[in-house]
């Protein structure tokens, strides 16, 4: 299965990656070769096989409903590219 340039652009948009024209060419090629590699799965009969998400097939543990964390805003904001008044700042969002 190969993919075309438009597919690459669509995927890149979903994944929020800015690609140049050259990048699109390159990824079209490299994504196609990965998809070709994984294509061999399709020949395997998996009817009736349950998908496996977690190797141990454990079940979810539950946490007590208690507040265990304190306010550490300053430490958490320290890595942010841009902040003001305790907020993370991003380019204006228009709704």
């Amino acid at each position: 299965m190969s993919i075309d340039k438009q597919d690459v652009q669509k995927i890149a948009h979903l994944a929020r990656l800015a690609l140049t024209e050259d990048d699109v060419d390159q990824y079209q090629h490299s994504l196609s070769s990965v998809l070709a590699l994984v294509e061999q799965m399709q020949s395997v009969d998996t009817d009736g096989v349950e998908p496996l998400s977690n190797p141990l097939e454990m079940t979810q543990r539950l946490r007590e409903d208690i507040v265990t964390e304190e306010n550490r805003r300053d430490a958490f904001l320290a890595n942010a590219p841009k902040t003001d008044a305790g907020l993370f700042l991003v380019p204006q969002v228009i709704e």
């Binding site: 799965m41 395997v44 349950e50 998908p51 496996l52």
Partner: peptide
């Protein structure tokens, strides 16, 4: 279905 789900089924076969 063709990719992720299929791969998870194969994952069970491998296990």
């Amino acid at each position: 279905d063709a990719y992720y789900l299929k791969a998870q089924k194969i994952r069970r076969l491998i296990k």
